[in-house]
Design a protein around this nucleic acid. Sequence first.
DNA 1: TCTGGGGTCCTAGGACCC
DNA 2: TCTGGGGTCCTAGGACCC
Length: 419
Amino acid sequence: MTFALIDGNSFYCSCERLFQPKLERRPVIVLSNNDGCAVARTAEAKALGIKMGAPYFQIRDLCERERVAVFSSNYALYGDISRRMNEVYRTVSPNVEAYSIDETFLDLSGFDPSRHEEMARALRAQIRRWIGIPTCVGLGPTKVLAKVANKIAKGDPAMDGVCDLRDPVARKLFLADVPVADVWGVGPASTAKLLAINVRTAADLSAMDFRLAKSLLSVVGERIVMELSGVSCMPLESVPPTRKGLAVTRSFGERITTLDPMLEAVSTYAARAGEKLRRYALAAGYMTLFMHTSRFASTPSYSGSKGIEFSPATNDSRKLIAAAQSLARQVWREGFAFSKAGVMFDDLIPQGDVARGLFDAPDDVERNARLMTAIDQINQRWGRNAAIIGATGLRAAWTQKFQRRSPSFTTKLADLPSC
DNA sequence: TCTGGGGTCCTAGGACCC
DNA sequence: TCTGGGGTCCTAGGACCC
Protein backbone atom coordinates (compact mmCIF):
# COMPACT_ATOMS: atom_id res chain seq x y z
CA MET A 1 0.00 0.00 0.00
CA THR A 2 1.00 3.59 -0.54
CA PHE A 3 -1.04 6.42 0.85
CA ALA A 4 -0.44 10.06 0.04
CA LEU A 5 -1.77 12.77 2.32
CA ILE A 6 -1.90 16.15 0.65
CA ASP A 7 -3.04 19.28 2.43
CA GLY A 8 -3.02 23.03 2.05
CA ASN A 9 -0.41 24.98 4.01
CA SER A 10 -2.16 27.32 6.48
CA PHE A 11 -5.17 26.57 4.33
CA TYR A 12 -7.60 29.33 5.33
CA CYS A 13 -4.81 31.92 5.18
CA SER A 14 -3.71 30.69 1.77
CA CYS A 15 -7.30 31.05 0.55
CA GLU A 16 -7.35 34.66 1.72
CA ARG A 17 -4.01 35.33 0.00
CA LEU A 18 -5.29 33.96 -3.31
CA PHE A 19 -7.15 37.11 -4.14
CA GLN A 20 -4.86 39.55 -2.37
CA PRO A 21 -1.36 38.68 -3.57
CA LYS A 22 0.09 41.66 -1.74
CA LEU A 23 -0.32 39.57 1.40
CA GLU A 24 2.13 36.98 0.07
CA ARG A 25 4.94 37.82 2.50
CA ARG A 26 2.93 39.38 5.28
CA PRO A 27 1.79 37.41 8.33
CA VAL A 28 -1.86 36.41 7.95
CA ILE A 29 -4.29 34.89 10.44
CA VAL A 30 -7.91 33.79 10.18
CA LEU A 31 -10.24 34.00 13.17
CA SER A 32 -12.89 31.53 14.30
CA ASN A 33 -16.59 32.38 14.27
CA ASN A 34 -17.50 35.55 16.12
CA ASP A 35 -13.89 36.70 15.57
CA GLY A 36 -13.02 34.69 18.68
CA CYS A 37 -9.70 32.86 18.25
CA ALA A 38 -6.92 32.47 15.71
CA VAL A 39 -7.61 29.20 13.88
CA ALA A 40 -5.17 29.53 10.97
CA ARG A 41 -1.77 31.19 10.87
CA THR A 42 0.84 31.52 8.15
CA ALA A 43 4.47 30.70 8.89
CA GLU A 44 5.14 34.44 9.36
CA ALA A 45 2.34 34.66 11.94
CA LYS A 46 3.58 31.56 13.78
CA ALA A 47 7.04 33.12 13.88
CA LEU A 48 5.52 36.07 15.76
CA GLY A 49 4.47 33.62 18.47
CA ILE A 50 0.76 33.55 17.65
CA LYS A 51 -0.52 30.23 18.93
CA MET A 52 -3.27 28.06 17.52
CA GLY A 53 -6.52 28.98 19.25
CA ALA A 54 -5.18 32.19 20.78
CA PRO A 55 -8.08 34.50 21.76
CA TYR A 56 -8.00 37.47 19.43
CA PHE A 57 -8.42 40.08 22.16
CA GLN A 58 -5.16 38.83 23.66
CA ILE A 59 -3.14 39.19 20.46
CA ARG A 60 -4.84 42.24 18.96
CA ASP A 61 -2.09 44.66 19.98
CA LEU A 62 0.60 42.36 18.62
CA CYS A 63 -1.27 42.03 15.33
CA GLU A 64 -1.59 45.77 14.93
CA ARG A 65 2.03 46.38 15.81
CA GLU A 66 3.33 43.73 13.42
CA ARG A 67 0.87 44.55 10.63
CA VAL A 68 -0.68 41.10 10.66
CA ALA A 69 -3.50 40.76 8.13
CA VAL A 70 -6.47 39.53 10.17
CA PHE A 71 -9.54 37.92 8.61
CA SER A 72 -12.87 36.67 9.90
CA SER A 73 -13.53 33.15 8.66
CA ASN A 74 -15.19 32.86 5.26
CA TYR A 75 -16.26 29.24 4.96
CA ALA A 76 -18.05 29.75 1.66
CA LEU A 77 -14.68 30.65 0.14
CA TYR A 78 -12.68 27.86 1.81
CA GLY A 79 -15.27 25.23 0.93
CA ASP A 80 -15.24 26.28 -2.70
CA ILE A 81 -11.44 26.17 -2.98
CA SER A 82 -11.44 22.80 -1.23
CA ARG A 83 -13.93 21.42 -3.75
CA ARG A 84 -11.74 22.55 -6.65
CA MET A 85 -8.66 20.91 -5.15
CA ASN A 86 -10.49 17.62 -4.77
CA GLU A 87 -11.57 17.80 -8.39
CA VAL A 88 -7.91 17.92 -9.38
CA TYR A 89 -7.03 14.99 -7.09
CA ARG A 90 -9.75 12.91 -8.69
CA THR A 91 -8.14 13.34 -12.10
CA VAL A 92 -5.17 11.40 -10.69
CA SER A 93 -7.08 8.56 -9.06
CA PRO A 94 -10.65 7.73 -8.09
CA ASN A 95 -9.31 6.34 -4.82
CA VAL A 96 -9.55 9.58 -2.92
CA GLU A 97 -10.75 10.32 0.60
CA ALA A 98 -11.53 13.96 1.37
CA TYR A 99 -10.68 13.71 5.05
CA SER A 100 -11.24 17.32 6.04
CA ILE A 101 -11.71 20.68 4.36
CA ASP A 102 -8.00 20.88 3.57
CA GLU A 103 -6.69 17.29 3.76
CA THR A 104 -7.12 14.49 1.27
CA PHE A 105 -5.79 10.93 1.28
CA LEU A 106 -4.98 9.31 -2.06
CA ASP A 107 -4.35 5.61 -2.49
CA LEU A 108 -1.47 5.32 -4.98
CA SER A 109 -1.14 1.55 -4.71
CA GLY A 110 -2.21 1.03 -8.31
CA PHE A 111 0.71 3.04 -9.68
CA ASP A 112 4.35 2.12 -10.19
CA PRO A 113 6.02 2.60 -6.77
CA SER A 114 9.11 4.11 -8.37
CA ARG A 115 6.91 6.96 -9.58
CA HIS A 116 5.05 7.75 -6.34
CA GLU A 117 7.31 10.56 -5.23
CA GLU A 118 7.41 12.07 -8.69
CA MET A 119 3.59 11.93 -8.78
CA ALA A 120 3.40 13.69 -5.42
CA ARG A 121 5.64 16.51 -6.65
CA ALA A 122 3.69 16.86 -9.88
CA LEU A 123 0.38 17.01 -8.04
CA ARG A 124 1.69 19.64 -5.70
CA ALA A 125 2.92 21.75 -8.60
CA GLN A 126 -0.37 21.36 -10.40
CA ILE A 127 -2.42 22.54 -7.42
CA ARG A 128 -0.11 25.51 -7.01
CA ARG A 129 -0.39 26.44 -10.67
CA TRP A 130 -4.09 25.83 -11.27
CA ILE A 131 -5.57 26.84 -7.95
CA GLY A 132 -2.80 28.83 -6.31
CA ILE A 133 -2.72 27.01 -2.97
CA PRO A 134 0.66 25.83 -1.60
CA THR A 135 0.53 22.26 -0.30
CA CYS A 136 2.62 19.52 1.28
CA VAL A 137 2.47 15.79 0.60
CA GLY A 138 3.32 12.89 2.90
CA LEU A 139 3.87 9.39 1.53
CA GLY A 140 3.68 6.20 3.57
CA PRO A 141 2.48 2.60 3.62
CA THR A 142 -0.26 3.52 6.12
CA LYS A 143 -2.44 6.53 6.79
CA VAL A 144 -0.75 7.30 10.11
CA LEU A 145 2.68 7.25 8.44
CA ALA A 146 1.43 9.43 5.57
CA LYS A 147 0.22 11.88 8.23
CA VAL A 148 3.57 11.89 9.99
CA ALA A 149 5.35 12.31 6.65
CA ASN A 150 3.16 15.26 5.81
CA LYS A 151 4.00 16.90 9.14
CA ILE A 152 7.73 16.38 8.54
CA ALA A 153 7.44 17.91 5.06
CA LYS A 154 5.70 20.94 6.55
CA GLY A 155 8.41 21.52 9.12
CA ASP A 156 11.44 21.22 6.85
CA PRO A 157 11.62 23.56 3.84
CA ALA A 158 14.56 21.55 2.49
CA MET A 159 12.17 18.72 1.64
CA ASP A 160 10.44 20.98 -0.85
CA GLY A 161 6.97 19.95 0.25
CA VAL A 162 7.25 16.17 -0.05
CA CYS A 163 8.32 13.59 2.53
CA ASP A 164 8.45 9.89 1.73
CA LEU A 165 8.33 7.44 4.65
CA ARG A 166 7.87 4.25 2.64
CA ASP A 167 11.39 2.96 3.21
CA PRO A 168 11.62 1.30 6.67
CA VAL A 169 15.27 2.22 7.22
CA ALA A 170 14.88 5.91 6.45
CA ARG A 171 11.64 5.87 8.37
CA LYS A 172 13.31 4.81 11.59
CA LEU A 173 15.60 7.84 11.48
CA PHE A 174 12.81 10.27 10.76
CA LEU A 175 10.46 8.93 13.42
CA ALA A 176 13.15 9.32 16.10
CA ASP A 177 12.85 13.10 15.65
CA VAL A 178 9.05 13.29 15.87
CA PRO A 179 7.61 13.98 19.35
CA VAL A 180 4.98 11.42 20.26
CA ALA A 181 2.43 14.21 20.72
CA ASP A 182 2.71 14.97 17.00
CA VAL A 183 1.39 11.56 15.98
CA TRP A 184 -2.15 11.54 14.57
CA GLY A 185 -4.51 10.26 17.25
CA VAL A 186 -2.21 10.94 20.20
CA GLY A 187 -3.73 13.82 22.17
CA PRO A 188 -2.78 15.41 25.49
CA ALA A 189 -4.17 12.61 27.67
CA SER A 190 -2.39 9.85 25.75
CA THR A 191 0.81 11.91 25.58
CA ALA A 192 0.89 12.16 29.37
CA LYS A 193 0.47 8.40 29.73
CA LEU A 194 3.17 7.67 27.17
CA LEU A 195 5.70 10.11 28.61
CA ALA A 196 5.13 8.51 32.00
CA ILE A 197 6.52 5.23 30.66
CA ASN A 198 9.26 7.00 28.72
CA VAL A 199 7.75 6.71 25.27
CA ARG A 200 8.81 10.07 23.85
CA THR A 201 9.05 9.83 20.09
CA ALA A 202 7.12 8.33 17.21
CA ALA A 203 9.97 5.81 16.93
CA ASP A 204 9.46 4.77 20.57
CA LEU A 205 5.74 4.42 19.96
CA SER A 206 6.20 2.35 16.80
CA ALA A 207 8.44 -0.06 18.72
CA MET A 208 5.98 -0.44 21.59
CA ASP A 209 4.44 -3.82 22.37
CA PHE A 210 0.98 -3.50 20.88
CA ARG A 211 -0.64 -5.37 23.77
CA LEU A 212 0.77 -2.77 26.13
CA ALA A 213 -0.47 -0.06 23.80
CA LYS A 214 -3.93 -1.58 23.92
CA SER A 215 -4.03 -1.81 27.69
CA LEU A 216 -2.81 1.77 28.02
CA LEU A 217 -4.65 3.49 25.15
CA SER A 218 -7.39 1.05 24.09
CA VAL A 219 -7.79 -0.28 20.58
CA VAL A 220 -7.18 3.21 19.24
CA GLY A 221 -3.63 3.15 20.58
CA GLU A 222 -3.09 -0.38 19.36
CA ARG A 223 -4.06 0.66 15.85
CA ILE A 224 -1.71 3.63 15.91
CA VAL A 225 1.23 1.43 16.95
CA MET A 226 0.51 -1.04 14.17
CA GLU A 227 0.15 1.68 11.56
CA LEU A 228 3.37 3.36 12.72
CA SER A 229 5.20 0.07 12.30
CA GLY A 230 3.95 -0.19 8.73
CA VAL A 231 0.93 -2.47 9.11
CA SER A 232 -2.07 -0.81 7.48
CA CYS A 233 -5.30 -1.16 9.44
CA MET A 234 -7.10 2.03 8.48
CA PRO A 235 -8.53 1.67 4.98
CA LEU A 236 -9.16 4.52 2.57
CA GLU A 237 -12.79 5.62 2.86
CA SER A 238 -13.61 6.97 -0.55
CA VAL A 239 -17.36 6.86 0.17
CA PRO A 240 -18.17 9.02 3.17
CA PRO A 241 -20.05 7.01 5.81
CA THR A 242 -23.62 8.11 6.48
CA ARG A 243 -23.61 10.75 9.13
CA LYS A 244 -24.82 9.98 12.61
CA GLY A 245 -25.60 13.38 13.99
CA LEU A 246 -25.83 17.02 13.02
CA ALA A 247 -25.64 20.24 15.02
CA VAL A 248 -26.04 23.98 14.72
CA THR A 249 -24.53 25.81 17.67
CA ARG A 250 -23.31 29.37 18.03
CA SER A 251 -21.85 31.75 20.55
CA PHE A 252 -23.77 35.00 20.61
CA GLY A 253 -22.35 38.33 19.49
CA GLU A 254 -23.80 39.76 22.70
CA ARG A 255 -24.95 37.94 25.84
CA ILE A 256 -28.63 37.03 25.96
CA THR A 257 -30.44 37.85 29.21
CA THR A 258 -34.11 37.69 28.21
CA LEU A 259 -36.21 34.89 26.81
CA ASP A 260 -37.40 36.47 23.54
CA PRO A 261 -34.03 36.80 21.82
CA MET A 262 -33.16 33.30 23.03
CA LEU A 263 -36.27 31.92 21.35
CA GLU A 264 -35.35 33.85 18.22
CA ALA A 265 -31.80 32.49 18.23
CA VAL A 266 -32.70 28.83 18.74
CA SER A 267 -35.44 29.12 16.12
CA THR A 268 -32.89 30.39 13.64
CA TYR A 269 -30.55 27.51 14.47
CA ALA A 270 -33.37 24.99 14.12
CA ALA A 271 -34.25 26.40 10.70
CA ARG A 272 -30.62 26.17 9.63
CA ALA A 273 -30.48 22.58 10.87
CA GLY A 274 -33.62 21.83 8.86
CA GLU A 275 -31.86 23.08 5.72
CA LYS A 276 -28.89 20.87 6.46
CA LEU A 277 -31.06 17.80 7.05
CA ARG A 278 -32.90 18.35 3.78
CA ARG A 279 -29.66 18.92 1.90
CA TYR A 280 -28.50 15.47 3.02
CA ALA A 281 -32.00 14.02 2.48
CA LEU A 282 -32.14 13.00 6.14
CA ALA A 283 -34.75 13.22 8.87
CA ALA A 284 -34.02 13.41 12.60
CA GLY A 285 -35.56 11.22 15.27
CA TYR A 286 -34.17 13.13 18.23
CA MET A 287 -33.32 16.73 19.08
CA THR A 288 -31.27 18.11 21.95
CA LEU A 289 -31.28 21.80 22.84
CA PHE A 290 -28.71 23.37 25.12
CA MET A 291 -27.81 26.81 26.39
CA HIS A 292 -25.09 27.93 28.74
CA THR A 293 -23.32 30.94 30.20
CA SER A 294 -19.70 31.73 29.43
CA ARG A 295 -17.21 29.44 31.14
CA PHE A 296 -14.78 32.35 31.35
CA ALA A 297 -17.16 34.78 33.06
CA SER A 298 -17.20 35.33 36.82
CA THR A 299 -20.97 35.98 36.76
CA PRO A 300 -23.32 33.16 37.89
CA SER A 301 -23.01 30.14 35.65
CA TYR A 302 -25.65 27.77 34.39
CA SER A 303 -25.75 25.08 31.76
CA GLY A 304 -28.89 23.25 30.77
CA SER A 305 -30.10 20.90 28.07
CA LYS A 306 -33.16 18.89 27.21
CA GLY A 307 -34.14 16.52 24.45
CA ILE A 308 -37.23 15.47 22.57
CA GLU A 309 -38.08 12.58 20.30
CA PHE A 310 -39.65 13.06 16.88
CA SER A 311 -41.96 10.26 15.94
CA PRO A 312 -42.02 10.02 13.03
CA ALA A 313 -38.62 11.46 12.27
CA THR A 314 -38.79 14.84 10.56
CA ASN A 315 -36.86 17.54 8.71
CA ASP A 316 -39.74 20.00 8.56
CA SER A 317 -38.35 23.31 9.78
CA ARG A 318 -41.66 24.30 11.32
CA LYS A 319 -41.66 21.21 13.55
CA LEU A 320 -38.00 21.70 14.41
CA ILE A 321 -38.59 25.34 15.31
CA ALA A 322 -41.64 24.55 17.44
CA ALA A 323 -39.68 21.87 19.30
CA ALA A 324 -36.68 24.17 19.78
CA GLN A 325 -38.87 26.89 21.26
CA SER A 326 -40.66 24.50 23.56
CA LEU A 327 -37.38 23.03 24.82
CA ALA A 328 -35.82 26.48 25.19
CA ARG A 329 -38.69 27.60 27.43
CA GLN A 330 -38.12 24.55 29.62
CA VAL A 331 -34.36 24.98 29.84
CA TRP A 332 -34.48 28.77 30.29
CA ARG A 333 -33.57 30.30 33.65
CA GLU A 334 -33.98 33.95 34.53
CA GLY A 335 -31.05 35.90 35.85
CA PHE A 336 -28.24 34.52 33.70
CA ALA A 337 -26.23 36.00 30.85
CA PHE A 338 -26.17 33.29 28.18
CA SER A 339 -23.22 33.15 25.81
CA LYS A 340 -24.09 30.19 23.63
CA ALA A 341 -26.91 27.88 22.59
CA GLY A 342 -27.42 25.15 20.06
CA VAL A 343 -29.57 22.40 18.65
CA MET A 344 -28.26 18.89 17.96
CA PHE A 345 -29.93 16.09 16.05
CA ASP A 346 -29.47 12.35 16.38
CA ASP A 347 -31.12 9.15 15.15
CA LEU A 348 -30.86 10.37 11.57
CA ILE A 349 -32.56 8.26 8.93
CA PRO A 350 -32.92 8.66 5.16
CA GLN A 351 -35.81 10.97 4.38
CA GLY A 352 -37.37 8.26 2.21
CA ASP A 353 -37.58 5.85 5.14
CA VAL A 354 -39.74 8.11 7.29
CA ALA A 355 -42.92 6.36 8.31
CA ARG A 356 -45.97 8.51 7.88
CA GLY A 357 -47.45 9.79 11.13
CA LEU A 358 -50.72 8.27 12.21
CA PHE A 359 -52.62 11.52 11.77
CA ASP A 360 -50.94 12.87 8.65
CA ALA A 361 -53.07 12.69 5.58
CA PRO A 362 -51.03 11.43 2.60
CA ASP A 363 -51.36 14.79 0.89
CA ASP A 364 -49.91 16.66 3.86
CA VAL A 365 -46.63 14.80 3.73
CA GLU A 366 -46.24 15.70 0.07
CA ARG A 367 -47.32 19.27 0.56
CA ASN A 368 -45.03 19.90 3.52
CA ALA A 369 -42.06 18.50 1.63
CA ARG A 370 -42.84 20.76 -1.32
CA LEU A 371 -43.07 23.80 0.93
CA MET A 372 -39.64 23.08 2.45
CA THR A 373 -38.13 22.49 -0.98
CA ALA A 374 -39.53 25.80 -2.15
CA ILE A 375 -38.05 27.67 0.81
CA ASP A 376 -34.66 26.05 0.24
CA GLN A 377 -34.70 26.95 -3.45
CA ILE A 378 -35.61 30.56 -2.77
CA ASN A 379 -32.80 30.86 -0.24
CA GLN A 380 -30.33 29.20 -2.57
CA ARG A 381 -31.20 31.55 -5.39
CA TRP A 382 -31.72 34.83 -3.55
CA GLY A 383 -29.46 34.38 -0.58
CA ARG A 384 -29.83 33.00 2.90
CA ASN A 385 -32.82 34.51 4.74
CA ALA A 386 -34.60 35.53 1.54
CA ALA A 387 -37.43 33.31 2.76
CA ILE A 388 -37.68 32.69 6.49
CA ILE A 389 -40.16 31.11 8.80
CA GLY A 390 -41.73 33.37 11.43
CA ALA A 391 -39.85 33.97 14.68
CA THR A 392 -36.38 33.33 13.31
CA GLY A 393 -34.05 36.24 13.79
CA LEU A 394 -31.96 38.21 11.33
CA ARG A 395 -30.11 41.30 12.45
CA ALA A 396 -30.49 41.01 16.18
CA ALA A 397 -27.80 41.92 18.68
CA TRP A 398 -27.06 38.26 19.40
CA THR A 399 -26.00 37.45 15.83
CA GLN A 400 -22.31 36.91 15.40
CA LYS A 401 -19.64 39.42 14.57
CA PHE A 402 -17.54 39.05 11.44
CA GLN A 403 -15.88 42.41 11.25
CA ARG A 404 -13.00 41.37 9.04
CA ARG A 405 -14.65 39.12 6.50
CA SER A 406 -13.15 39.03 3.02
CA PRO A 407 -15.49 39.20 0.02
CA SER A 408 -16.92 35.94 -1.34
CA PHE A 409 -14.70 36.13 -4.39
CA THR A 410 -15.70 32.83 -5.92
CA THR A 411 -19.23 32.20 -4.75
CA LYS A 412 -21.01 35.57 -4.99
CA LEU A 413 -21.33 37.30 -8.33
CA ALA A 414 -21.26 40.75 -6.74
CA ASP A 415 -17.95 39.92 -5.05
CA LEU A 416 -16.16 38.80 -8.20
CA PRO A 417 -12.68 40.33 -8.26
CA SER A 418 -12.26 43.01 -10.93
CA CYS A 419 -9.28 44.86 -12.31
C1' DT B 1 -23.80 -15.58 57.76
C1' DC B 2 -24.07 -17.56 53.04
C1' DT B 3 -26.63 -14.68 47.88
C1' DG B 4 -24.34 -17.01 39.99
C1' DG B 5 -22.84 -16.11 35.75
C1' DG B 6 -23.29 -14.84 31.96
C1' DG B 7 -25.28 -12.13 27.98
C1' DT B 8 -27.13 -7.54 25.40
C1' DC B 9 -28.33 -2.87 24.92
C1' DC B 10 -28.09 1.85 25.96
C1' DT B 11 -26.10 6.16 27.54
C1' DA B 12 -22.88 9.48 29.31
C1' DG B 13 -18.59 11.08 29.14
C1' DG B 14 -13.85 11.08 27.60
C1' DA B 15 -10.57 11.58 23.98
C1' DC B 16 -9.42 12.96 19.73
C1' DC B 17 -9.76 15.19 15.10
C1' DC B 18 -9.82 19.57 11.98
C1' DT C 1 -15.40 44.30 27.06
C1' DC C 2 -13.51 40.28 23.90
C1' DT C 3 -12.13 32.93 24.43
C1' DG C 4 -15.28 28.53 17.62
C1' DG C 5 -18.12 24.93 15.60
C1' DG C 6 -18.48 21.17 14.16
C1' DG C 7 -17.71 15.83 14.04
C1' DT C 8 -16.30 10.46 15.32
C1' DC C 9 -15.16 6.54 18.08
C1' DC C 10 -14.43 4.06 22.37
C1' DT C 11 -15.23 2.55 27.14
C1' DA C 12 -17.38 1.97 31.47
C1' DG C 13 -21.19 1.15 33.86
C1' DG C 14 -26.09 0.63 34.60
C1' DA C 15 -30.43 -1.69 33.32
C1' DC C 16 -32.27 -5.62 32.04
C1' DC C 17 -32.59 -10.50 30.62
C1' DC C 18 -32.43 -15.63 31.45
